[in-house]
Computed example of a mutant assay.
Amino acid sequence: MNVIRIACAALCLFGLAGAASAQELEPSLSTRTLVTVDPHAHYKVVYDIHSADVAAGISKGLFYARGLIEAYRKQGVAPKQLDIHLVMHGEAAQYLLIDSTYRDVVDDPFAVNLNAKIVQDLLGLGVSVEICHSVMKSKGWTADDVLPGVTIVHDGYTRLVKLQNDGYAYIGGF
Rank of each mutant, 00 (worst) to 15 (best):
L122I: 07
E70M: 02
D108M: 06
I171Q: 06
K74S: 15
I69W: 02
D155W: 05
G15R: 06
G90E: 02
A55G: 00
H85E: 08
A52S: 04
L16P: 00
I152C: 11
L16D: 01
A111Q: 10
N115D: 05
E26W: 08
M1H: 12
D48T: 00
L147D: 07
A65Y: 02
I171D: 10
K139H: 08
P27V: 12
H40G: 15
E70P: 02
A20Q: 15
G67R: 02
G167M: 04
L16V: 05
Q164S: 05
T158W: 02
H89S: 10
S28C: 01
G156T: 01
G149I: 10
K137R: 15
G124W: 07
G15M: 08
A71D: 09
A41P: 03
G172F: 03
V146K: 02
M88R: 07
A116D: 08
Y102F: 15
A92D: 12
Y47C: 03
M136D: 01
H154C: 14
V135T: 03
G172W: 04
G61L: 05
L114C: 05
S138L: 11
I49R: 03
D121P: 01
K117N: 11
V37T: 04
R5G: 11
P39S: 10
V146G: 12
A9R: 15
M88F: 05
K74P: 15
A116R: 07
A41H: 07
A116G: 04
T33P: 08
T101V: 06
V105C: 13
I98N: 11
L86I: 03
Q81V: 14
S138T: 12
Q120M: 15
V105T: 14
V35C: 12
L25I: 04
V135I: 11
T36Q: 10
L29A: 07
F110A: 14
S30Y: 04
V37L: 06
A19I: 13
S30L: 14
A65D: 00
T33L: 12
S128L: 06
V135A: 09
P109R: 03
V106D: 05
L13C: 02
C8Y: 11
K137C: 10
Q81D: 15
M136C: 05
D108C: 06
Q23T: 10
I84Y: 00
L122A: 03
A111F: 09
P79F: 05
R32D: 03
S59K: 13
F63A: 07
D145V: 07
Q81R: 10
S51L: 01
D104S: 10
P109Y: 00
Q164D: 04
Y157D: 07
H89N: 09
I69T: 02
V161P: 07
V77Q: 08
A17G: 15
H42C: 13
T31R: 14
Q23W: 08
L96D: 09
G61S: 09
V77T: 11
Q164L: 08
P27K: 07
G61D: 08
K162C: 06
A143T: 04
Y64H: 09
L86N: 02
S128D: 13
G156F: 09
Q23A: 15
D38Q: 15
G90F: 02
Q164H: 09
F174S: 08
E130W: 01
R5Q: 15
L163E: 08
V46H: 01
C8W: 08
A55N: 07
E91H: 09
L122Y: 03
V161C: 09
R103K: 10
V127K: 06
R73M: 14
P39L: 04
N115V: 06
A71T: 12
Y43K: 00
V87C: 00
